[in-house]
């Protein structure tokens, strides 16, 4: 499972970085989205991988922490997802504004001279 997860994160980051460096705004936004997925998975993995371990303990009983998943990274991931979702939406608006004002989807607002 560790191998699978690290491969997934690695491929997402690699594609994300490549897309981020492309000159078209749509590619950039896709790159940022892929990168944020990778980062979310990464944060999730910092709590170590558990199968079938609940993150919330029950009240009043003896607990062995080894049987429970770490809840903090899961909370962090939730926050990070919401924030990256919001910023992506915001960036989409800017992208459309730029397309409308400059008439091109190049990140510099004009086509490169050939």
């Amino acid at each position: 499972m560790e191998l699978l997860l690290s491969l997934a994160i690695g491929i997402l980051v690699a594609s994300g970085v490549w897309l981020l460096l492309r000159p078209r705004t749509y590619q950039v936004i896709m790159g940022l989205s892929l990168l944020s997925y990778a980062v979310n998975l990464f944060i999730f993995a910092t709590g170590r991988l558990y199968i079938g371990g609940p993150p919330v303990v029950e009240k009043g009983i003896e607990i062995n922490p080894a049987n429970y998943a770490d809840p903090v990274p899961q909370a962090l991931v939730l926050t990070a997802i919401v924030i990256s979702f919001a910023t992506t939406a915001l960036f989409l608006v800017v992208l459309l504004a730029s397309r409308g004002i400059t008439g091109t989807d190049h990140v510099d607002g004009r086509e490169p001279e050939r």
Binding site: T25, T87, F91, V94, L95, S98, T102, V107, D108
Partner: peptide, 10 residues
């Protein structure tokens, strides 16, 4: 503003 703002945001 849109052009430089977009760079700033990215």
């Amino acid at each position: 503003r849109v052009k430089w703002g977009m760079h700033y945001i990215v």
